[in-house]
């Protein structure tokens, strides 16, 4: 089987003081072996919560409830015991976060943080682990890997820390890497270095990559398959060319028009999506994008569109999708 991750009807609710909040609402998608899947959408649309659910990092979050299935190589991660999940996390699936400083331990040396999981997951001796850690640091572009093993995270720049995170993420040869806004806090020239490094590693090791970002340019550069999220839902999914040149969802179309670019003619005014994403307690009937949608018709207010096939690989959830041309 070619599918490595198969998410079925995943929902994540948070019980908040304002009521139940559907952060992720009935989301399904798959990731194939070695595939690069881009997930794009504005802040608050549920990208991070989806990844936290996959990693089972919501277990300890008070008020969070998860429904659905997350099949990793056919095994439902949601039904695994804590200990089993611990084996998978960092070993088979690993994660690169936006802010490496918060996910690196400030009181442990870089070396210790890398060797720890090598000893735990791969049962290496401390000497072997140290050798491997230096090898990994070399691989992610440190010129003095043995020296860097003794450094603490705060001695490094943001870009360097992200390199360390990547070294840790690939240390156990994972089959799936989830990178959640891995370069959002970095400068563009560093961003290019880091993403090329991640892609290079995935290419060589055959790992699949879920690249989560709000940057449509980065998705265009790296992703084979693109998932567009809005307000907890997948509103469109397809291979990159389908999404960028033949979108069938008003939100995707709106985003593509609203983003300023360094190529092409400069428009006098950017075309905007009016209004804002819905708030927590908003209506649940109808299309969640309806209040901002320029294509909306009466039906959109009363009936919720489902993700339906447009053509092979291409899905959109919009009553008007047949009327739309990318």
């Amino acid at each position: 089987m070619n599918t490595i991750l198969n998410i079925n009807n995943l929902s994540v609710d948070f019980d908040t003081e304002y009521g139940i909040f559907h952060a992720v609402d009935n989301v399904s998608f798959t990731v194939s072996k070695g595939q690069v899947v881009g997930i794009v959408g504005e802040s608050g649309c549920g990208k991070t919560v989806t990844t936290l659910a996959i990693m089972r990092l919501l277990d300890t979050v008070v008020g969070a409830s998860i429904q659905g299935e997350i099949l990793f190589e056919g095994q439902d991660l949601l039904s695994l015991r804590k200990k089993q999940m611990h084996q998978i996390r960092g070993n088979e699936i690993s994660m690169i976060f936006q802010e490496p400083m918060t996910s690196l331990n400030p009181i442990l040396t870089i070396g210790r943080q890398i060797t720890e999981s090598l000893e735990l997951h791969l049962k290496m001796s401390s000497k072997q682990a140290k050798e491997r850690a230096a090898e990994l640091l070399d691989l992610v572009g440190f010129s003095d890997p043995y020296q860097k093993l003794n450094d603490y995270p705060q001695q490094l720049s943001g870009g360097m820390r992200q390199r360390v995170m990547i070294a840790m993420a690939i240390s156990c040869n994972p089959k799936l890497i989830i990178a959640d806004e891995p370069t959002t806090s970095l400068d563009v020239t560093i961003q290019a270095q880091i993403l090329d490094l991640i892609m290079d590693i995935c290419d060589k090791s055959g790992a699949a990559l879920m690249l989560i970002t709000h940057n449509l340019g980065l998705i265009a550069r790296y992703a084979e398959k693109v998932i567009v999220m809005y307000s907890g839902n997948i509103v469109e999914e397809g291979i990159a060319n389908q999404i960028y040149y033949d979108s069938h969802h008003p939100y995707t179309l709106g985003l593509l028009k609203a983003v300023p670019r360094i190529d092409g003619d400069i428009k006098k005014q950017l075309i905007t999506i009016e209004g804002m994403p819905p708030e927590q307690t908003d209506q649940l009937i109808g299309c969640s994008f309806e209040p901002r949608c320029v294509y909306s018709v009466e039906k959109c207010k009363i009936s919720t569109p489902k993700l339906e096939s447009i053509q092979k690989h291409h899905l959109a959830s919009c009553w008007q999708s047949a009327e739309l041309k990318g």
Binding site: V188, T189, Q191, A192, N215, L216, G217, L218, I219, A220, R221, A240, N241, Y244, L256, V259, R261, I262, D263
Partner: peptide, 13 residues
């Protein structure tokens, strides 16, 4: 700097 900025256009990019 300019060459590092990705363009939201997969083929061109």
């Amino acid at each position: 700097l300019l060459s590092s900025i990705p363009i939201p256009d997969p083929i061109k990019e």
